[in-house]
Each structure stands twice: as C-alpha cells, then as structure tokens.
Design a binder for these strands. Sequence first.
DNA 1: CTAGCATTCAAACGTTCGTTTGAATGTGAG
DNA 2: CTCACATTCAAACGAACGTTTGAATGCTAG
Lengths: 223, 223
Amino acid sequence: MSLRSVKPQHETRTRILDAAEELFMLHGFEGTSMRQLTAKAGVNLAAVNYHFGSKDALIEAVFRRRLDPMNAARIAALDELEAAGRPPGPDTIIRAFVGEGLRMIEDVKSGGRNFIRLLGRTYTEPAKPIRVLIGQLYAPAMARYKAAFERALPQMPRDELVWRMHFMFGTLAYTLAATDTVQLIAGCKPEDRYDARLLEERLTAFLAAGLTAPLKTVVRKAA
Amino acid sequence: MSLRSVKPQHETRTRILDAAEELFMLHGFEGTSMRQLTAKAGVNLAAVNYHFGSKDALIEAVFRRRLDPMNAARIAALDELEAAGRPPGPDTIIRAFVGEGLRMIEDVKSGGRNFIRLLGRTYTEPAKPIRVLIGQLYAPAMARYKAAFERALPQMPRDELVWRMHFMFGTLAYTLAATDTVQLIAGCKPEDRYDARLLEERLTAFLAAGLTAPLKTVVRKAA
DNA sequence: CTAGCATTCAAACGTTCGTTTGAATGTGAG
DNA sequence: CTCACATTCAAACGAACGTTTGAATGCTAG
C-alpha cells in the first residue's frame, strides 16, 4: 500500500473527466450518452459506473475538479488584495474575480477552457440538482466577494448591491458561454474572443462602470 | 371553406405550445418527454407529431410564436424613438430593448413569463440548431439596434461597441434566466425579482453605465 | 510461482425515448 | 342521410438510454 507506484493510478478517471468536460460543453448533459463519452475517452462503457457510480455522480465530479480550486484561487486573490493596501476599490475586486475565470480559459491544454464554457452554460441549466451543486461550490467565494464589495461601496444599499452583483455574474457567465451571439451582431473571429488580456480589460471596464453607476437614476427623455 | 367557424381550430396546437413552453423552461428540451408534454397539455401522445411533425419542429414553433412579435415590437419601439426627437441617447435605446423583454415577463396569464425564462436559458443552449434558429429570429432587431447605438455613440470604436452589446445581452439573458443565483448571494424573495418596473430601472442604469464606460481604462493598482 | 485484488471487458438487462400505425370519432358539405 | 375529411385515440414500433453482470485480465505482495 505505502509507496505505491501511483503512475496511471487514476488515468482512466482523468480520461473520463476530460471527455465528459468536452462533450457536456458541446452537447449538454442529457445530450451526451455514456456510449459517446466512453468512446471518446477510449475506455470501456462500464468504466464510468465503476469509477464514479453513475452519470450524475460523474457530472458532479466534473464540477468539483475545477470549481474548488478556482474559487479557492479567487478567495486567495482577495486575501492578498486586502492584506496589501487597505481597501481595494471595486474595479480591483472585479478584476480579481474575473481574472481567475479568464486564467482558466487560457489554459487550453488541460481543458480548462472547455470547463469554463461548460460552466457558463450550466448557470442556466434547467436541471435543479446541478444548480444546487453549483450554488454550494460557489457560496464561500460569493460571501467573501459580497463582503468586499460592501466595504468598497459603503454608501450603496445592500439590495442594490445584490442586484448589481447578479448582473455582473450574468455578464461573466454569458460572455464565457455564448460564443455565437457576438458573431451574430458583427463578424468576429472566434479566435479574438479569447485574447484573455484584452477581454479582461473590456469586461472589467464594463462591469466596474455598471457596478458603480449613479444610484438614483433620474429618467430623462431624449433631448 | 370561407367563413369557417374557427372556434377551436387550433386549440390543440395552442395547448401543446403552452405546455411545451412551461416544461421546456422547467426541464429543458431533452429533459421533457413527449409523454409528459402531451399529458400536461391534455392531448393524445400522437398529437404533437400530427400537428407539428416532430419534437424538433415543436421547439421551433415555440420560439417563433413569441420571438417574432417581440422583436417586431422592439424594432417598432426604436422606430418611434427615432421618429420623435432626433437621436435617442444610449439609455433610451437600452430601455426600449429591455422594456420589451420585461413587458413579456409581466404577462403571466398567457405564459409570456415562461417563455422569457426559457429564452434566457436557450441563449446558452448546447444544441446547435436551436442557437442558429434564435440567431435568425434575432438578426433583424440586432442590426437595427446596432445601428442605433452607432449613431448614439459615434466616438466609440466599432469592435468595442460589439463587445459591449455582447455584454449587455448577456446581462439581460442571465437576469431573466437565472433565478437562483441572486438568492445564492443574499436572501431575496423570488417575488421581488419580477417587479418589472424596478428591475427595468436597475437593469437600464447598470447597462447604460457599462455601455458608456470610459474608453481607455488606465489600469491603476489599489492606492 | 501463486494467490488476491483492482480493473477492464463484452454482453445483456429493463426502461424510456420519439415516432408510426390503423381504427374510432366527430364534424361539415352535398 | 351520407360521404369525406380532419382529428383523436390506444397500441405498438425499433432504437437508444443508463446500468448491471460475470468472466477475463494484469499487476503486486507474499
């Protein structure tokens, strides 16, 4: 037992997780069959049930593998910000949150990009158990960032802040998930979408402006 | 033929469309079976194939029934704005687009609310044919609003505008679709979400600020 | 070398899926 | 009344689904 050779210890598990990540992103959960999935992974049909127990358990494992480290990194980034200069501004907090997501998109080799796009799609997944799981995995990071925003924007009412955070997560999720709409509005090379540096600038500018928008908007008619 | 009694002419069709709208919203397309669907609609199992031809054709019909009028209303609202005072400002244009979507959410009786939430989810639907259909149905309105924004923001580079429009549609889609995340961030009565008037104010303020954010964001570190 | 164990494999399980069929039903025109 | 047509219905179709099984396989410790 001790000092075991650990080499391909869980190679089959990893192959399954990688294939699942990509196929779920392409065809959804119900649209991906175990036969497609195991064929792509190059493993036996029964391997998923042997290693994970069921298809649902596999879905959960796909999310846990990526989401736990990513949100831990988000919390760590916030810790670092708050340890340095006193209170980080809203745009700095936004950049920390968005940056960790985009970091994973650049990580093409290990499939992080597949996962990020899958994640964006899953925010609006109809199936309830999946959303509940996502909620649980996000909750700690969510609470920390909410507190950080409250500190950075003390004058903003709590319910208004909640809504604006909601809008922000929506923008992020959609940006990562919806490849097609931007091409629908104007011709745009898909490659351009993942110049992560530029995208981070654009997203942060947009979100920071929205988050700190004037509070009592007086509706004024044109001219 | 002429002067036919038209009473329940397509009652079965309508019942199917309504049931499909709700079940697709709750469980997704693949998660909704024809047996559930026809049971909820109170029609025979074979009715969908008789009236629509197939499940996929039914999905398309569900979208066409709502999307064509909604986007026509959006274009009409923009026409009216441009016919009145000269160039409508960005926030006015945003309000016109968002308003038509929220108008449908208030329409609980006839199921518009179900559809809007279904629509939000479908922007990120994995299945490709559905996204292509959505794209086609949106294209005319999209082109008109893009032109309007270009006129309202002549100093903004075209590619930057495309991205910001992308962000805006993302926020809207997600806000309409993701019921749970806002409750995840902070306790929030689901009823509050659809005070459409208040939501329109909040969304418009957020989006207008994001759309008109300063262009060359100088990255400044905290303090 | 051998026994034990984790893993892989081909095959089959029962269920549910979307769709099709052909007879029953009701309605409107001649 | 009667025929023709549109619609509804119960039943069944083959295919594909997720899962289970029990034998084969390969590695490791003794």
